[in-house]
């Protein structure tokens, strides 16, 4: 579904992402973990076509992001870490806007909005302007808007930040269901317990470089993901010095 090959993104002289290669298959929830500034958000933004990159290739379902970004964007949905949505719109206007952009039919969108807004207990707030939404409500709206057009791949940057426990639980359920139906999810998180329970595969990145990737069992073995992550971080720091 998503194949990243030797991706390199530089800011000035600094490699924010350095020769990164990953492969995410259909039906997989793929966790992406790393410390602040490790290059997670840069990678996610490069995949969804927000950031241009210097080297390497990103393919979504075989289509190159660099060569045909519009076709790739049609297949994916992106939820950023801080959902800055159009505050001048109401929630329902925003959902219709997204549905229009992705060409979702009137009936289909109605059904999706009803289903996901109820799941996230947001139905009663849909007529409110987004300016009046809390961070969590914006996050819920961003999630609903990502699901409305039935993407094949969802990219999420810290999706659980700001969500209440019930909404976080609902999101996890939706993520599992989405992948069960053949979709793929690539998401970054700092909450290692969530990654450990939710992900089929995980990748650890530091300083823009991939330091470990594989199935959860391959990466953590008998230890906890937290222990492995901290150990890998330290090893990598020592190898650099």
């Amino acid at each position: 579904m998503l194949r990243i090959t030797n991706l390199t993104k530089t800011y000035g002289n600094k490699n924010a992402v350095d020769n990164l290669s990953l492969h995410i298959q259909k039906g997989e929830i793929f966790g992406f973990i790393g410390h602040n500034g490790a290059g997670k958000t840069t990678t996610l933004k490069a995949i969804c076509g927000i950031l241009q990159f210097e080297k390497g290739e990103i393919r979504i379902d075989g289509v190159s992001v660099a060569k045909d970004p519009i076709a790739c964007k049609k297949m994916l949905a992106y939820i950023p870490d801080n959902p800055d949505l159009y505050t001048f719109m109401t929630g329902i206007q925003y959902l219709h806007f997204v549905a229009d952009i992705y060409g979702v039919s009137a009936d289909k969108r109605q059904e999706k909005i009803r289903h996901f807004a109820d799941a996230f207990s947001l139905t009663q707030d849909l007529a409110q302007p987004i300016a009046a939404y809390s961070h969590g409500m914006k996050q819920k709206l961003a999630v609903i808007s990502a699901l409305i057009h039935e993407p094949k791949l969802i990219l999420m940057d810290e999706p659980f930040v700001g969500l209440d426990p019930k909404a976080a639980h609902t999101l996890k359920e939706i993520m599992r269901e989405f992948c069960k139906q053949g979709g793929a999810i690539f998401f970054s998180t700092h909450v290692l317990e969530v990654a450990e329970k939710l992900c089929d595969k995980v990748a650890i990145i530091k300083g823009g470089k991939l330091i470990k990737a594989g199935t959860m069992d391959e990466v953590k073995g008998d230890d906890s993901l937290e222990e492995v992550f901290l150990e890998l971080e330290n090893d990598h720091a020592e190898s650099l010095t």
Partner: peptide
């Protein structure tokens, strides 16, 4: 404002941005 579900109309992407 109370949300009341209404039958929606779909627009093209350019019209959607125009109305935005």
């Amino acid at each position: 404002a109370k949300y009341v579900e209404k039958q929606s109309k779909s627009r093209s992407a350019v019209w959607a941005i125009f109305f935005k």
